[in-house]
Design a protein around this nucleic acid. Structure first.
Lengths: 337, 337
DNA sequence: CTGTTAGCGCGTTCAA
DNA sequence: TTGAACGCGCTAACAG
């Protein structure tokens, strides 16, 4: 009944006048231990309020049953949806999850990875920050034999495991539906020019146009730095055109929110004078009076889940397998009209 | 250069033909080691790519520099805002954060706490689930000497450390502003009757009414189970009244979203026929065409931050201090009119 | 089936 | 200023 320090194997061994290893084996249901002694040991263990000292076990087994998750932000809906699923998968397998947020700061990101390494996590899930240019952490973890799976925002390398969304499919669908509604002046409000995510969107946009036989007009692509001001500037630029677009695909729902607000303020009618589709499928559209025509869903939860499952495969693998690439096709959802 | 296993203290000792303990001390800048040897040791350590084995250190020091965070859900904006701040505080102090989500399942919640205990976390931050009726985990952690700080959704006990929001202040402000706008028929859409959060809201609502000299009408309080259907039923009930309310305080923004949608569908004009204020301050109101009049902010980030700081004080404390209770006054924000 | 011994990597006495 | 020895709690190799 002494609540002070939890009992150790040694103590319960002494109490039963048997050896510590027998106790250890009994507690772990080792086949070579007699049923009776196993029972006796377990009984006394319970009485003495025994709890295995995991830190000792981690130390001995060289395994921590812990995975690290590194994300740009924990409060962003996309990532919190992902991490929620990741926690689920880990929980099922009796792993714990350590998390860190880089806040798009490459130094902080690296520091977190360092910490995870010294904590001897068994694996890492990661989505890199916007400002991460090179990836020293890859060989850092590689050298320590810690498998890593990237998702969503991933380094552009073929040598790594990654789960990403294919932004093209959704974009093609979006343009298709715009065209089938009679729109020909279709614009793209893209993110920062250099961002891989922007480049991919632009490529998909161009492909979508050409598939529908719509000529590309340079002035129909504008960029935003993703700040509210940038978003507003971007839409203003489009609206100022002599033949302003009647349909717009925007970088993501956050951009769309700003943009649509500006449009309203300028006295234009949403879903009438001008129509929107954007990436991300913010879950609240359904409550709005004039939501975008549709959203391009990227399935953050599913991505996180898949990435986690992949990671656990790697952790359990004996041989290091070839790098895996899993692609989630983005899809148009929430069509309102 | 062997990338296989990281070097150990022993190895670098052998390489330098000195004792492991000297190496250990040198690495930790022990004052009693000569400057030269310290330098030599550090140099060789770097060469051999030495990394301290944290699991060994945790084991020996009986300290893991890890805190656990247990929340109902990781994907809910309120909690992800909190956890983001918690991670920040922990990161500053070189602690890592393990997290688990209970999904309002009391069993899962308990299991997570068990896990945290066996992982020997140095402290726990927790917001309990809606279905948690009793708190076996409190003495569980108590017995293990693990300090715990509750926040937001906390057990109703005086013996625990907790950070909570005072729901009353915001409610009083809300009713005040409603009244000053000429509303007398002020209604409350509350959550489940038994939920402490509901009870508190009701109490505040009654107090607010009486402060303004408005008689309480039983039929002006309705309850929802917080599902979309429940929310819709609640508002329908109010709208069906012969003298329906012109102002409504709702349990939270999610309820308000459903409710306002229903109101729109019934052809009533938001912010004209009927006005809303709700708890939680969902960050997207500013984008909506007809947002609620105001929101009652509960400061999730600040709560999380404060709770984390409190926890670290407890972790560092030598003596176990008296239970602390910190209250964040809720406040009306985002007034549109 | 069970006990003995050894050691994981580190910090920390105690002696020199 | 340094080294030798020990032990944290547990598991595993090797006896018996």
């Amino acid at each position: 009944m002494k609540e002070g320090k939890p009992a150790t194997i040694k103590e319960i061994a002494r109490r039963l006048k048997i050896s510590p290893s027998t106790v250890s084996r009994a507690l772990n249901d080792h086949p070579s231990i007699g049923l009776v002694t196993t029972m006796r040991v377990k009984k006394v263990a319970a009485e003495m309020n025994y709890e295995p000292n995991q830190t000792a076990i981690f130390f001995k087994q060289r395994k921590t049953f812990t995975v690290g998750v590194v994300l740009p932000s924990l409060s962003e809906p996309f990532f919190s949806a992902a991490i929620s699923e990741i926690e689920n998968v880990a929980n099922e397998r009796n792993y714990t999850v350590i998390m860190g947020q880089s806040l798009d700061d490459a130094d902080r990101e690296l520091r977190i990875l360092q910490t995870l390494k010294t904590h001897r996590v068994d694996g890492v899930l990661m989505s890199i920050g916007k400002n991460t240019r090179d990836y020293p952490f890859i060989e850092l973890l590689e050298a320590a034999g810690i498998p890593i799976v990237f998702f969503d925002c991933v380094p552009d390398l073929n040598t790594i495991n990654r789960v990403v969304s294919d932004l093209e499919t959704g974009m093609l669908e979006a343009i298709d539906i715009f065209v089938s509604c009679g729109h020909l002046a279709i614009s793209l409000i893209n993110g920062p020019v250099l961002l891989p995510a922007s480049i991919e969107r632009k490529k998909a946009y161009l492909k979508g146009l050409s598939k529908c036989g719509i000529p590309f007009r340079e002035e129909y692509i504008v960029n935003t730095d993703l700040t509210p001001e940038g978003n507003e500037a971007a839409i203003s630029q489009l609206l100022a055109l002599s033949d302003r677009p009647s349909a717009v695909v925007s970088f993501n729902d956050y951009v769309a929110l700003d943009v649509m607000k500006t449009v309203r303020q300028k006295g234009l009618a949403l879903n009438q004078d001008i129509h929107f589709i954007s990436y991300a499928n913010y879950p609240l559209w359904k409550y709005m009076e004039n939501p975008p025509m549709a959203s391009i869903e990227q399935f953050p939860g599913e991505q996180g889940k898949k990435a986690a499952e992949l990671l656990f495969e790697l952790i359990d693998a004996v041989e290091r397998p070839e790098p895996v690439k899993v692609v989630f096709k983005s899809r148009l959802v929430n069509q309102v009209s």
